[in-house]
């Protein structure tokens, strides 16, 4: 009787252990499968990411334009999205009256739940036309001396994709930053107030500084999300494998490449190239997420340490 019972204990623990190990196994399988799936093109080495010609018919696979598109759209998303996210986070943690916090957080969470294909659809039919007729012409006439605001206006473009990505990363960046700001002890705020700081000075010298690793973590997570975001970008970037100086021109991204060409890839080597594009996505987003999680972990540790002081 006793033995059977302890057997049940062992069996239960083993079962949960096996399921928990899925995280380890999955991590390995991701790299292993994508690595072996792209054997045919991996052997051409670094030219895959440095080559700027994508010509599947002639079996020339260079994803530099897509890598460039992924990086530029992510950068636009961060440049526009991070300040807005921080504004929202600061409002929620430092400025908002108590009664407004919960409803506003609710709205921000709803924004996070909207599926990306819906952002794509809305971007394509609602935002892109507005940008094309009302915003981009103004950008071009006022700032057209800059190479990034020149050329033909299509509506779908690197900038359009970046703007929608910005909207998409705001809820996540805002929500994690807000948590980091709320974790700042009041004693830190008091220290600044007692020195004669105004509220905005308290936020800058004390709150943001104390919470900076959490804020950086949210930015890394936002980057990871933007870099790997597929549907909205596929629908808005124009899917053209070119590197152009102008943000108003169509471009391409790694994720959009994988999503839009897999169904038409017929040759083994073409498929291999697309899987390798997936591998690049995997490596970059894995690193961004590891960095973000390490930052968050450090934040939690320091918070625990602070609470024992």
């Amino acid at each position: 009787m006793k033995r059977r019972r302890s057997g049940a204990d062992t069996a239960f623990k083993s079962m949960t252990l096996i399921f928990a190990s899925s995280a380890v196994v999955l991590s390995l399988i991701y790299f292993f499968e994508l690595y072996y799936g792209s054997t045919l093109t991996l052997k051409s080495g670094i030219s895959f990411v440095t080559g700027s010609t994508w010509d599947p018919n002639n079996q020339v696979f260079g994803v530099l334009p897509m890598l460039y598109g992924s990086l530029v759209t992510s950068a636009i998303a961060l440049i526009i999205g991070v300040p807005i996210s921080l504004g929202v986070a600061i409002f929620l943690s430092e400025i908002s009256p108590q009664v407004l916090r919960s409803p506003i957080s609710f709205v921000v969470e709803m924004l996070a739940a909207v599926p990306s294909v819906i952002y794509g659809l809305w971007g394509l039919f609602v935002l892109a036309p507005i940008l094309r007729t009302n915003v981009y012409p103004i950008l071009e006439s006022r700032l057209g001396f800059l190479p990034i605001f020149q050329g033909t206006i299509y509506g779908v473009s690197v900038l359009t994709a970046g703007i929608v990505l910005a909207i998409m990363i705001i809820p996540m960046v805002a929500s994690i930053s807000r948590d980091a700001l709320l974790a700042v002890p009041d004693s830190q705020r008091e220290a600044a107030y007692a020195l004669g700081a105004t509220r905005s000075e308290v936020i800058r010298m004390s709150v943001l500084s104390y919470a900076r690793s959490g804020v950086f973590a949210s930015i890394f997570l936002g980057f990871g999300r933007a870099f790997g975001e597929t549907m909205a970008v596929t629908m808005l970037i124009g899917n053209t494998p070119l590197i152009s100086a102008s943000l108003l021109s169509p471009g391409y991204s790694l994720a959009a490449l994988v999503a839009s060409e897999f169904t038409e890839a017929t040759t083994q080597v073409y498929i291999s190239a697309l899987i390798e594009a997936g591998l690049v996505l995997l490596v970059v987003s894995f690193i961004a997420n590891v960095v973000a999680r390490l930052l968050i972990r450090r934040l939690i540790r320091s918070r625990e340490a602070a609470s024992y002081l």
Partner: peptide
């Protein structure tokens, strides 16, 4: 000026 119960230097300064 004011000094508090728990020392609260700015840790990132």
């Amino acid at each position: 000026g004011m000094v508090f119960q728990k020392p609260n230097p700015f840790p990132n300064m």
